[in-house]
Design a protein around this nucleic acid. Sequence first.
DNA 1: ACCTGAACACCGTTCAAGT
DNA 2: ACCTGAACACCGTTCAAGT
Lengths: 202, 202
Amino acid sequence: MAAAIELADRDGIESISMRKLAQELGVEAMSLYTHVRNKADLLDGLADAVIGQIPTSTDGADWKASLRQIVFAARGVVLRHPWAPRAVQAQTAPGPAALHYINAVIGILREGGFSIAQTHHALHILGSRVLGFTQDLFDDSGDLEPEAAASLASALGQSHPYAVEMALAVTHAGTLGPCDDDAEFEFALEFILDGLARLQQS
Amino acid sequence: MAAAIELADRDGIESISMRKLAQELGVEAMSLYTHVRNKADLLDGLADAVIGQIPTSTDGADWKASLRQIVFAARGVVLRHPWAPRAVQAQTAPGPAALHYINAVIGILREGGFSIAQTHHALHILGSRVLGFTQDLFDDSGDLEPEAAASLASALGQSHPYAVEMALAVTHAGTLGPCDDDAEFEFALEFILDGLARLQQS
DNA sequence: ACCTGAACACCGTTCAAGT
DNA sequence: ACCTGAACACCGTTCAAGT
């Protein structure tokens, strides 16, 4: 499992194959099947191993502080293992670490005074963000070259003015500057936490 | 492209291969490379084709009504093509239909009085939800058998009380009843729309 | 321009055989 | 219990050859 994590960190999860992983371990591909049912089982284990790296202990003053703390911890793990979102998404069933983690999250909300129904809604609102990542529509953190920006504006400015306006704003030379994914993640999380506080009081 | 969509609807996107798609078209696998650079190119086209099915015209009274309308339309397409989220996620670059769609979404917000910065935040908050789907942590819409529920409670009740409490609530016999994904999607969308309205006024 | 067929370098997984 | 090696049924993609 450790070798698989190392391999994923180095070459990406896409390039994990039974043969390559076996080679990494100085063993034949078929030997892996003694320890793992099949490849899906291996990837499930990988996902659970990475979730297990998230510390679930909190010392927050209230549910908001605790939730913020645990989600930031999850984001830290995701940033260290960029393949983690893909592995978690491919997971067929939650493993023990996932169960432990979700129990901690639900516990924070329940202890914080959320009803079961409110907690259930909260989980759906948070979605994957509670594990430290979001599925963005498309990557807007890449920066445009000045000439690329010019051709973009002239080619698509007529048909898609709003998209071009936004694309140009999210540039070094633009009004917003290049997109900071971490800052956006934090902003969105605070947005949701504030909403949840209001949800609880209604 | 139409044949690929049909194949994905029938067998799932996972089982799309150049060879199978070619067979579907009564042709040899290599013939596809005349019309498509490679498999990634084909999947990109598939994702853009499904996004192109979302109607982008709105007749909403305000930005909130319009955004609700367009997102529900997107959700309808996703429900008709369950493989769509996976295809969109795998997309390497946004195609023309994606560009057209995102332009419509941004336009609704900008015309509704959101600043560029606010609109940018809104896109990150909405994430994939704006395309009609969410990445949930795990599937909780499956229903538990009474005996499975009993063994769950006894096996994990001690170590993971909050997770078990939630799992039992989301059952036919539970206090919440089985999870309605569509209702949760709508609830979360309204939660976000309300938050965005507050964001705009602040 | 479009299609074909053989070939290459990969996959996951089986099975029977070894220690 | 753990590992091996050959084999099977697949992949995406190349290349040279056809029409």
